[in-house]
């Protein structure tokens, strides 16, 4: 109990002092996760919409695959990306292993199926409502997809949040492909794991608190945005 209180006290003073190392770890975490999320959305949003609103051979197989990959364990993703990027792997010459880029790739692989599957669900519901109207208006397939994606924008914020939450919290994938190298590839989750194993509970706890605070802030911001935009568009 003594340890606990002391650790909390030290954690808060680290945060309050704006510890440089702490700051570096947090900013790398955010950079990796947000970049991975942007990539996942660039791929996942259109793909999810295509799966929801078009018919082509193999569509069902793809959507089953996306749903199945949603539950992929991060360590498995880490392993696969590791094998791709290691010097013996097909992407070995790029020398990406143990760099932030490798971590971005791993998290993007992890999050894309989530964005695809959830986007598909959201767009399917909207498509049922809009399909006849959009066909009457004579929209092309591409126009239909972009209209549906924009109409779904409020729900898609939640989809992106789900992806963010998954990526920012995972430790297995970034650990394997990033290597948890200080000042290079150490992010919040890998740092927490390391400091805890060393018994450095203060730093681990400080990072845990920041991770929690970031999650809360991102969700609160998204919810506020969603609510005000919702009200502005008077979505029934």
């Amino acid at each position: 109990m003594q340890d606990f209180t002391q650790a909390f006290g030290e954690a808060f003073s680290l945060v309050a002092a704006g510890d440089a190392e702490l700051f570096g770890i947090v900013s790398l975490s955010l950079r990796v996760t947000l970049t991975a999320l942007v990539i996942a959305c660039l791929i996942g949003l259109p793909l999810g919409a295509v799966l929801a609103a078009t018919r082509f051979p193999g569509r069902r197989g793809l959507s089953v695959l996306a749903s199945a990959l949603m539950g992929l364990p991060p360590v498995v993703v880490g392993l696969l990306v590791y094998m791709m990027l290691s010097s013996a792997g097909p992407l070995g010459p790029l020398q990406l292993l143990y760099t932030p880029t490798a971590m971005i790739i791993a998290q993007a692989v992890l999050v894309t199926p989530i964005v695809v599957a959830l986007t598909q669900q959201v767009i399917e519901t909207l498509h049922a409502e809009y399909d006849e109207q959009l066909r009457i208006m004579g929209l092309s397939k591409l126009e239909t997809l972009s209209t549906l994606l924009w109409e779904a924008r409020f729900s898609l914020v939640t989809v992106a949040l789900a992806g963010f939450g998954r990526a920012v919290a995972e430790v297995g994938a970034v650990m394997i492909v990033g290597g948890n190298i200080a000042h290079a590839t150490r992010v919040m989750t890998t740092a927490i794991a390391l400091e805890t194993s060393k018994g450095e509970l203060a730093l681990a706890l400080a990072l845990g608190l920041i991770l929690l605070a970031i999650s809360l802030a991102v969700n609160a911001a998204a919810m506020t945005l969603r609510r005000s935009a919702h009200a502005a568009a008077a979505v029934a």
């Binding site: 409502e129 809009y130 006849e132 109207q133 009457i136 208006m137 004579g138 929209l139 126009e143 209209t147 924009w150 109409e151 409020f154 568009a233 979505v235």
Partner: peptide, 21 residues
């Protein structure tokens, strides 16, 4: 249609969308 399916946008943006189409 009997039940109008309007886009979740402003009145102006609905017309803009139709004209762009």
């Amino acid at each position: 249609l009997q039940r109008p399916i309007l886009l979740r946008r402003s009145v102006r943006a609905n017309l803009d969308h139709a004209l762009r189409a």
